[in-house]
C-alpha cells in the first residue's frame, strides 16, 4: 500500500494532509464493518456514522464512502451517472477517487472491479468478482407511508408492511395498474422491503439472483444496505397485477441501432425526439461490434 508520503510525491500538494482513499483508517474500518452487517442481513438498512466529504450531500457521499472504504491497490474503478461515464458528476467523483488513491479508472464495464453508479445498472452483466456501489437519495422505502424514521424502523423490525401494500393497492384503484416509476420497492430475501435507489424498472430484474454484489450507500440519511449474490429480489406486486419493465417499442438508439437497451430521450429545437442508449459504455461496445454478456 502506497504511503501518504509516496502518494504526495506522486500527486503533489493536492493530497497533502489527507489519508489514502481520503477517509481515515478507523472510518474505513467502521464502514466496512457496517457493510459486512448489511451483507449478512440482505435488504436491511444499517445505520452508520456517515462522514462529511468534499462532495456535497445528495451528490453521492454514501456511494463514495463505500467505494473509498473498499478500494485498494489493484482495484479498477468505473463511475457512471445516469449510465454515462462522461457526465460532469461522474467525472468529478472519479477525479476525487483518482486523486486520493492513485488508482486506475476505466470506462469499460468488464474491466472494473468496483463500479460506482447513480440511478442505473450497466447493460453488461456483472460477474462474481465485481461490486456495484449504488448512490441512494432516500434509503427508506416506507417513507411514502410513514414519515417518521423511528416508526418505519419498527415496521421493518416487525415485518409490518400492510400500509405499504395498501398504498400499492390504492395506486391500482386510482390508475388501473401498478404505480411507481424509478426506484420501485422490492422484497429482499422474503424479509425486508428495500428501496433499490431510483433505477428504472428496466434494471430491477437484474437485482434478482445476480452473480455480483450490490452495495447501497445513503450518505445524507446515513444508511448502508446490500444485496449479496444469489439473493431473491422481487418487486412488490399482486398475483393479478404484475410488475412490468418499460418498453421502447419501435425505438432504436440513434448511435448504435440497439433496440434492447434502456434509452434516453433527447428533444431538439423543433420538438423532435431522438433516443440514445443511456449506458454509454455499452453503446460504444455495440458500435465497435464487440459482443458482451447481457443479463438474462
Amino acid at each position: 500500500m502506497a504511503s501518504v508520503a509516496e502518494l504526495t510525491s506522486v500527486h503533489g500538494e493536492a493530497v497533502r494532509g489527507y489519508s489514502y482513499g481520503f477517509l481515515d483508517a478507523v472510518s474505513k474500518r467502521e464502514i466496512r464493518r457496517s457493510l459486512l452487517k448489511a451483507v449478512a442481513i440482505p435488504g436491511y438498512q444499517v445505520p452508520f456514522g456517515s462522514r462529511e466529504l468534499p462532495i456535497a450531500r445528495g451528490w453521492g457521499t454514501g456511494g463514495l464512502q463505500v467505494t473509498l472504504s473498499l478500494l485498494g491497490p489493484g482495484d479498477v474503478i468505473k463511475v457512471i451517472d445516469q449510465g454515462d461515464d462522461a457526465s460532469v458528476n461522474a467525472q468529478n467523483l472519479r477525479r476525487l477517487v483518482e486523486r486520493t488513491s492513485g488508482l486506475q479508472t476505466t470506462i469499460e464495464t468488464g474491466e472494473a472491479t468496483i463500479i460506482q453508479t447513480r440511478h442505473r445498472i450497466p447493460e453488461e452483466k456483472l460477474r462474481e468478482d465485481q461490486m456495484l456501489v449504488l448512490q441512494v437519495p432516500i434509503p427508506e422505502p416506507l417513507r411514502r407511508v410513514e414519515r417518521s424514521v423511528r416508526l418505519a424502523r419498527q415496521m421493518h423490525a416487525e415485518r409490518d408492511y400492510s400500509r405499504m401494500w395498501l398504498a400499492i393497492y390504492e395506486d391500482i384503484v386510482r390508475r388501473g395498474e401498478l404505480g411507481g416509476a424509478a426506484g420501485y420497492p422490492v422484497m429482499v430475501n422474503d424479509r425486508f422491503i428495500m428501496a433499490p435507489s431510483p433505477i428504472p424498472r428496466w434494471d430491477i430484474p437484474k437485482l434478482n439472483m445476480a452473480d455480483a454484489l450490490f452495495l447501497f450507500g445513503a450518505g445524507r440519511e446515513k444508511r448502508l444496505y446490500a444485496i449479496p449474490p444469489y439473493t431473491r429480489v422481487v418487486p412488490l406486486e399482486f398475483e393479478d397485477y404484475r410488475f412490468e419493465i418499460e418498453t421502447f417499442e419501435g425505438k432504436a438508439c440513434a448511435r448504435c441501432g440497439a433496440t434492447d437497451t434502456f434509452m434516453d430521450e433527447t428533444i431538439s429545437i423543433d420538438g423532435d425526439k431522438t433516443y440514445t442508449c443511456s449506458d454509454t459504455a455499452y453503446c460504444e461496445t455495440v458500435q465497435m461490434g464487440r459482443e458482451v454478456t447481457r443479463w438474462s
Binding site: 393497492y169 399482486f238 393479478d240
Partner: peptide, 19 residues
C-alpha cells in the same frame, strides 16, 4: 384511503395478495 382500501388493509395484513 378508499372505503374498499380500508377494508383491504385488514386483508393485506393477513397476506392476501390478489386484487
Amino acid at each position: 384511503v378508499t372505503a374498499g382500501g380500508n377494508i383491504a388493509e385488514r386483508l393485506l395484513a393477513v397476506d392476501w395478495r390478489n386484487v
